[in-house]
């Protein structure tokens, strides 16, 4: 991390700790969105940070990864990742509205293909005023009032189905798919960073808990089976962060096609973004699983925060794809030049 990035980390770490955190996550159920915190965040200019410097942004993907991890560490119920990624697409097509730049209108990405005119289970579906979607080889922009009501769900996210009607075609053919793929890879990278944040906090919360909770006259954290269950996690968390950072680095450099599978030399952005999502996703599942378990019965109660992290890890790690499906897409990238595909 360079000095600028240290500063980004400090600023956003304080912001998300002070303005969001488990408290805000709880208070925003069932919608899955904290409007007050979003307004505060908008005052800092964060919703526009991903666009180009002349438009008032200038953050690289590597910078955004830092923001996303801090957001994840506080399970912030804010659509910052979707908004930033979508704004970048809109700017490229010269369609960036002032209200989107400032965060007055929320923009989101339809991460999965549209089917029969409906975008199902859109991550920001309940709250997004602008949605970008890919329908076959057409990139669509839906400008519509959001339902402001989410489908009840595992991760308390602002998920909703959205009908894609009267949407503008904003790009076609190769341009459309390239823009969408780029946006989706950025989204994968940033969601992975969010998941690293979830993992990091789950470890911290659980380590504090096992130092504090006593059974048989000593802290449960002095039992070796508990220690060992936790000792696996920091390496996984750090590995996930390294992989996400590498993906962001490749994204900033727009590296495409650099895949040497048998030599383990991989710098292709799309490949690294996909790897990040699988690995950061499954790491967060594992860390929150151990974390909840070592809380004993309290981990299962609504009162303790670990269950919030547990459920959000599951939601974000599979809202795009099941990890197994994502691995199959990844295999297509890795084995492009190999075999009979």
């Amino acid at each position: 991390m360079n000095a600028d990035q240290e500063a980004i980390k400090d600023v956003f770490s304080s912001f998300f700790v002070e303005q969001t955190g488990p408290e805000s996550a709880r208070n925003s159920i069932p919608l899955g969105f904290d409007l007050k915190a979003w307004k505060r965040l908008s005052e800092t200019g964060a919703p526009g940070m991903g666009v180009s410097p002349p438009a008032g942004g200038g953050a690289s993907l590597s910078d955004l990864v830092i923001v996303a991890e801090e957001a994840g560490s506080q399970i912030a119920p804010l659509p910052i990742i979707d908004h930033v990624v979508t704004s970048r697409v809109l700017e490229k097509l010269d369609l960036l509205e002032e209200e989107v730049l400032t965060g007055t209108l929320i923009a989101g990405l339809v991460v999965r293909p549209v089917k029969n005119g409906v975008a199902k289970s859109v991550p920001t579906g309940a709250i997004a005023n602008r949605l970008i979607a890919l329908n076959e080889d057409k990139l669509l922009l839906l400008a519509d009032e959001p339902p402001n009501k989410s489908l009840p769900n595992h991760g308390d996210l602002p998920i909703a189905h959205r009908v894609i009607k009267n949407a503008d075609v904003i790009a076609e053919g190769r341009e459309a798919t390239e823009l969408f793929d780029r946006a989706l890879n950025e989204w994968k990278t940033l969601i992975s960073a969010f998941l690293v944040g979830i993992t990091r906090s789950s470890i911290e919360i659980t380590v504090e808990y096992v130092k504090d909770r006593h059974q048989f006259g000593k802290p449960i954290g002095s039992f070796q089976s508990v220690q060992h269950g936790l000792a696996d996690l920091p390496g996984l968390c750090d590995g996930a962060r390294l992989l996400v950072n590498k993906a962001a680095w490749a994204g900033d450099k727009e590296i495409a096609g650099a895949i040497n599978l048998t030599d383990n030399e991989i710098s292709d952005f799309a490949t690294l973004a996909s790897m990040s999502l699988v690995f950061a996703g499954e790491t967060s599942l594992h860390a929150t699983d151990r974390g909840l378990h070592y809380h004993g019965g309290y981990g299962f109660s609504e009162e303790y925060d670990i269950q919030l992290f547990y459920r959000r890890a599951r939601a974000w790690s599979q809202i795009l794809n099941s990890p197994s499906e994502e691995c199959l897409d990844l295999a297509d990238l890795l084995l492009k030049d190999i075999g009979a595909e």
């Binding site: 992989l243 383990n264 991989i266 691995c327 295999a331 890795l334 075999g339 009979a340």
Partner: peptide, 21 residues
Amino acid sequence: LMINNNLMRERIARTAIINQV
């Protein structure tokens, strides 16, 4: 061929991730 088997492909992808990490 085995290389076209989905479980095989998933596991190859997972191994590639493990090697990177």
